[in-house]
Simulated assay, not measured.
Amino acid sequence: MGTVYLGLSPGERRVAVKVVRAELVADPGFRKRFAREIDSMRRVGGFHTAQVVDASPEGERPWLVTEYIPGPSLHTVLQELGPLPARTLRALALGVAEALEGIHACGIIHRDLKPGNVIIAEAGARVIDFGIARAVDATALTRTDFLIGTRGFLAPEQLTGAPLTPAVDAYAFGMVLAHACGAAPFPAGAELESALRMLPADLSAIVTACLSSRPTARPTPEQILEHLGGGTAGRAGDWLPPAVRTMVGLHNVPTITAS
């Protein structure tokens, strides 16, 4: 969609500045999508997402400024360090489920939940990038047969063109946890329950339910939170293993501004 820069607000707070690619600016459909992303982010807010600071969807080069969340993406963490321990998985599940609860409460479906859109910060997981989010009651702005989302995290109904519900985010949630524990991508021919045995029993049960082929069988974020509870998630900072905490710390190092 564009390039994201690290910037400073007038009060010298770090922000993330997304500037749209030049070749997309002339596409009115894209401008609608970008404006919708901004609207979605402003509506959701909440502790587990990135707050909008300012935006200009109608500018010569549309841009969006959000708070800077100091931490790597879950994708980067898994790529560099491998599967996460049980305590971290539980806190991750609670944080992402709480984010989805807030997103869905605003009548919005994220539609592209994946490790690259989850930031691992010291205080907890944050869900970002509402670039293809849509209001539940909105008319799709995409053309027919144009697949939106990331393969490997798409619910079956997203692949068949069936009506979408917030349950597609539950499916993606299950896949995110499966990747975070090292179970996914699933080996060819592997049974789901067998592949998820490396998860704690309660998390395995939730992920199995989230990956149901039937949308109505998947739990809501509220049901996930109720099932897992929050007592064992750990305090801020305690949920991260040392190697991940080091990665997060590197994102908190003050930057040097060239003169």
Score class of each variant (00 low, 15 high):
M1D: 10
Y5K: 07
L6M: 03
S9Y: 05
P10N: 04
G11E: 13
E12V: 13
V17W: 03
V17D: 06
K18L: 10
V19T: 09
V20E: 01
A22L: 12
L24T: 07
D27W: 02
F30Y: 11
S40W: 01
R42L: 06
R43W: 02
G46C: 09
F47T: 14
H48R: 15
H48W: 02
V52I: 11
V52C: 08
V52P: 08
V52E: 12
V53C: 08
V53L: 15
A55G: 03
S56Y: 11
P57F: 00
P57W: 02
E58P: 11
G59R: 09
R61E: 05
R61M: 07
R61S: 09
L64F: 12
V65K: 13
T66R: 05
T66M: 11
P72Y: 08
S73M: 10
L74S: 04
L74Y: 01
H75K: 15
H75M: 14
L78F: 04
Q79E: 15
E80G: 09
L84G: 14
P85L: 11
R87W: 07
T88I: 07
T88F: 05
R90D: 04
L92C: 00
A97M: 03
A97D: 06
E98G: 10
L100R: 00
G102I: 01
I103A: 00
I103D: 00
A105C: 11
A105L: 11
G107C: 05
I108T: 14
I108R: 08
I109V: 14
I109T: 10
I109D: 00
H110F: 02
R111Y: 04
R111Q: 09
L113T: 00
K114L: 05
A121N: 07
A121V: 06
A123C: 02
V127R: 06
V127Q: 06
V127D: 02
A133M: 12
R134I: 04
A135H: 12
D137Q: 03
A138S: 15
A138V: 01
L141A: 04
T142S: 08
R143K: 15
R143Q: 14
R143E: 15
T144P: 01
T144F: 12
D145H: 14
F146D: 14
F146Y: 14
L147A: 11
I148G: 04
Q158L: 01
Q158P: 00
Q158F: 03
T160A: 10
A162N: 14
A167Y: 00
V168H: 01
Y171L: 07
G174K: 03
V176W: 01
L177N: 01
A178Y: 06
H179K: 12
H179A: 07
A184P: 00
F186D: 04
F186Y: 11
A188R: 15
A188D: 12
G189V: 14
A195E: 01
L199V: 13
A201M: 02
D202R: 12
L203W: 02
S204E: 12
A205S: 10
A205M: 06
A209K: 13
C210H: 03
L211Q: 08
L211S: 09
S212E: 03
S212N: 05
P215I: 00
Q223V: 02
Q223M: 01
G230C: 14
G230K: 13
T232I: 06
A236I: 09
L240G: 07
P241L: 07
P242C: 08
P242Y: 03
V248E: 12
G249K: 09
L250T: 10
H251S: 12
H251N: 13
N252I: 10
P254G: 11
P254F: 00
T255R: 14
T255K: 13
T257Y: 14
S259A: 15
